[in-house]
């Protein structure tokens, strides 16, 4: 119980720091800390499979991708004022949190554990469509990585395009 409180406090704190960070690299590292906190919380919940995936993909692979993209794009600080006013942002966030919180409160819970197949059976047999969707998504991800790696020159207008 105390561990869950600590983990969730850490996750929210690291998330806030990621949002407040001036440097992009710092924000990516705070995001990795959020992932690690969530992964430990998932393990505590009795979901070790998804905790391992979250830790390796969320805190590992995604952080490396962020560092790679920041290296290419540059770690520029942006001091421009936000588009949305602060009061409107807070209002929308509180509204969304209230809606989600009330939906959670209205959801019935069952304390008795239902008879359920193993994770392997559920994942590979009962959720076959999800696997197909994931294959498509991974293909899109590969295309994204290729795009990230492509050194493309800025197109220059050819002489034919010039209007006399």
């Amino acid at each position: 119980m105390a561990l869950a409180v600590g983990l969730m406090t850490t996750a929210v704190f690291c998330g806030l720091q990621a949002m407040r960070a001036k440097r992009l690299l710092t924000a990516a590292l705070w995001l990795a800390a959020v992932s690690a906190s969530v992964a430990i919380a998932l393990y505590q919940l009795g979901a070790p499979d998804v905790a391992v995936v979250e830790l390796s993909v969320g805190a590992g692979l995604v952080t490396i991708l962020f560092v790679f993209a920041i290296t290419i794009a540059g770690d520029e600080a942006m001091d421009a004022p936000p588009i949305m006013p602060k009061w409107a942002s807070w209002l929308l966030v509180l509204l969304a949190v209230g809606v989600v919180g009330s939906a959670i409160q209205a959801t019935p819970t069952s304390s008795a554990a239902a008879a359920e197949a193993s994770f392997t059976a559920v994942f590979w047999q009962e959720r076959g469509l999800d696997i197909l969707i994931q294959i498509g998504l991974i293909f899109a991800g590969v295309l994204g990585v290729l795009n990230l790696l492509t050194e493309e020159d800025t197109p220059t207008p050819s002489p034919k395009d010039k209007v006399p």
Partner: peptide, 17 residues
């Protein structure tokens, strides 16, 4: 919990992409 795990793995893959 296993159904939740299965859906969560799908969300993690989608999130990474």
């Amino acid at each position: 919990v296993n159904l939740g795990q299965s859906l969560a793995v799908t969300v993690i893959v989608a999130d990474t992409v």
